[in-house]
């Protein structure tokens, strides 16, 4: 793509995301804009960068080969001012356990969630699916089993652009890998959790300031 063509396609992409609103796959973008999927990937990357400036109010969300456009999390209060109402809905303990597992370790199977929670989780998974907080697709390696992933809706509720942006995403995944290899050294673990707790406390301090 040459420079002027690229600018035109960037504008087209912006218009498409605005009209479509919902999560859209790279494949669909390439079809609508009549470009290759590779070009669509690059175009989206450029568009994402163009939104990073302080003078822009929008952000791109990413999950499972799809993207969606939304308002930056820091402007969440604008809507609350518009509707003059605070949005609140608590997460119950079971939802919290299940969502955390899905957010940090997706795609994840029901059996793995149940292993870590120690309890049958079919009801809570159904409830979370109905609330549109998670999605599932058939496990390509196991017939009759599903893999659970966070939905765009969930990412938006948490104000993150992709699951990898969660605090300590890498750390928890390394921890999990070690556990699965059965190699977790107790000292390592203590050190790790201290670090994580420190980070949380730090964040809370920052917030209260």
């Amino acid at each position: 793509m040459n420079e002027s063509n690229k600018n035109k396609k960037l504008a087209e992409l912006e218009a498409l995301l605005f009209i479509y609103g919902e999560p859209i796959s790279f494949k669909k973008i390439s079809e609508v804009l009549e470009i290759t999927e590779d070009d669509a990937l690059k175009l989206v990357e450029d568009f994402k960068e163009s939104l990073e400036g302080e003078n822009r109010g929008l952000i791109l969300l990413f999950s499972e080969e799809k993207i969606q456009i939304g308002t930056k999390p820091e402007f969440s209060s604008i809507l609350e001012k518009l509707i003059k109402k605070e949005i609140s809905e608590d997460l119950t303990p079971a939802s919290l356990e299940t969502l955390a597992l899905i957010l940090y370790f997706s795609p994840i199977s029901r059996s793995k969630i149940e292993y870590h929670r120690g309890v049958d989780s079919s009801f809570i998974l159904k409830s979370l699916l109905l609330r549109g907080l998670i999605e599932r697709y058939p496990d390509p390696k196991m017939p009759n089993a599903y893999l659970y992933v966070p939905s765009f809706n969930l990412l938006r509720h948490l104000g993150i652009s992709k699951k990898e942006d969660l605090p300590d995403y890498q750390k928890f995944n390394e921890l999990n890998k070690k556990f699965e290899e059965g190699k977790l050294v107790q000292e390592d673990a203590n050190h790790l959790s201290e670090n994580i707790i420190e980070n949380i406390n730090q964040e809370e301090q920052n917030k209260s300031q």
Binding site: G70, T71, P73, S88, R156, H157, G159, L166, E203
Partner: peptide
């Protein structure tokens, strides 16, 4: 802590 703190709207 993140839940509904700063929501992304679409």
């Amino acid at each position: 802590n993140l839940w509904l703190k700063n929501i992304i709207f679409s």
